[in-house]
Structures are given as structure tokens and as C-alpha cells.
Design a protein around this nucleic acid. Structure first.
Lengths: 115, 115
DNA sequence: CCGATACTCAAGTCCATGCTTAACAATGGT
DNA sequence: ACCATTGTTAAGCATGGACTTGAGTATCGG
């Protein structure tokens, strides 16, 4: 819960399908709040709340011009998630360097005094 | 909620920090359920529940040998998430092909009779 | 100035879900 | 045979979070 913070917020944000739908639309280009709301069969207010989450996570940037709030994807946010995933997969591919840890306990051929 | 299904389950699974912690540990190599539980300050039962979610999402594969269940990362699951993110970013980078849609409504210089 | 548009904010509802406890099953070691 | 280890399952709780309603603010067009 009180994790890395950035990664936490981003994956939490992406964990909701409506928020992912918003990200999908925004990857096509900037949109206003009400434009985002139209295809979503939830209230404008709900969309605003999702946008708050997305903005706090760094996935989306918004700017208000007059009475319309323009929402843009902020791709560096996506980058954080991509990097996390790539790191996991990278470690997994190099996992043979660390063989012999099926259990986390001591391995018969190695003495390890710990606590 | 009843979305693409695969993508939905995967991002939902990754939305929880304990589950991400499990994925992180598993990227280092296979582990048993109780080995996974140890550093997590939640109950074994809770870990089992997380593993169910992870397995149903396709991120993790498990196999039971004797009384120990060995859990492995299933990297194709990660791939689905990576692909989704890469697609969003790809579209974003090519977004200038579709300029002129700040609002989804008509743009002053264009007549568009709609409903 | 008036009405319509485009949000904003605060409360409150309600369901999903993360977690615990507890009882149980199966396997392994001695 | 006995007990410890490892996991499974069900039940219930409790918090979070997605969503709505409703009332309010600010901006735009005429």
C-alpha cells in the first residue's frame, strides 16, 4: 500500500477498465472532459474523478482553457509501467544465474547461518 | 468491466501492490507458496487468494509436487500488458495524423450536421 | 443579461475485494 | 504411528473505491 509510490499509483490507475478506456481514447489525441464522458455510460462527475486519479498518477495531464479542460496523455507515465514490466521480464530471462532457490530456505549443499 | 477480458484481468491483477510484489519475487525464479508468503506480512491464505487471481490472469503458473506448490512467472502474461502499453504510446506518437479533434464536436471551420 | 455549456465539489450509497480466522486435507520426516 | 509442514476452502468482516445525486461556479454565445 505504501509502496514505491509512482509505480503503485500508475498500476492502480490502470487497474480500472474505464480509466484504461480513457487512456485509450487519449492516445488518439487530446480530448475535453465531456468528450471523454460521452461513450462511457457513467456520469461526468465520475469521469472527473477518474481523471483525478489519472492525473495524480502522472498518466494524464490536463489544462483548463476557458471553461473547457483539455486532457492529454502524458507518455512518461506509460513509460514507468513499461519499464517495470520490462524489468520483470528481463530478470525472468536471466533467472538461470540464480538457480537453486525453489524454496527460500537453505540449500543442502550450502551452509548458511542466518538468524 | 466486461472488457477485453485478458487485458482486463492482467491489469486488474497488477493493480494490487502485494500481487506486484509476488510477481517481482517470481521474476527472480520459482518459489513455493509459503516462501512467497514470508516477507509479505499477510496470511498464507491471503497469498493463496492472490495467487488465484494471478493464475487466472495468466501472469503466473503453478504446479503442485507433493505438498508444495511451485509458482512460476508466465512471461507471456507480462507481454500482454507490455503490448497494450506500447500500443497506446505508439498511437500517441503518431497522433499528429489525426489533428483537429480537441473537442469531439464540430470545429468552427468545418460544418458537420450531427443529430 | 440570459440561457446553455462545461465542469467542480461534497455527500452518500453500495458493492468488490483484500484480509483474517478457523477448520480441514494431504504429504513428508523420523 | 505421530507430528510438523504445506496448502486449501469457506465464512465473515471491514475498508476502499466506483458511482450517483444534487447543488454550485465559471465561461461562452447571443
Amino acid at each position: 500500500m505504501l509502496n514505491n509510490g509512482a509505480v503503485d499509483r500508475i498500476f492502480h490507475a490502470l487497474g480500472d477498465s474505464n480509466r484504461r478506456a480513457i487512456v485509450e481514447r487519449l492516445s488518439r489525441g487530446a480530448l475535453s472532459v465531456s468528450a471523454l464522458a460521452k461513450p462511457l455510460d457513467i456520469t461526468l462527475a465520475a469521469v472527473v474523478q477518474h481523471l483525478q486519479v489519472l492525473e495524480e498518477s502522472g498518466l494524464v495531464r490536463t489544462e483548463k482553457l476557458g471553461r473547457v479542460r483539455s486532457c492529454q496523455l502524458h507518455p512518461e507515465g506509460l513509460r514507468v509501467a513499461e519499464d517495470w514490466l520490462a524489468n520483470r521480464r528481463g530478470l525472468w530471462e536471466r533467472r538461470f544465474d540464480r538457480l537453486g532457490e525453489l524454496l527460500d530456505g537453505p540449500i543442502p549443499s550450502r551452509r548458511k547461518a542466518r538468524t
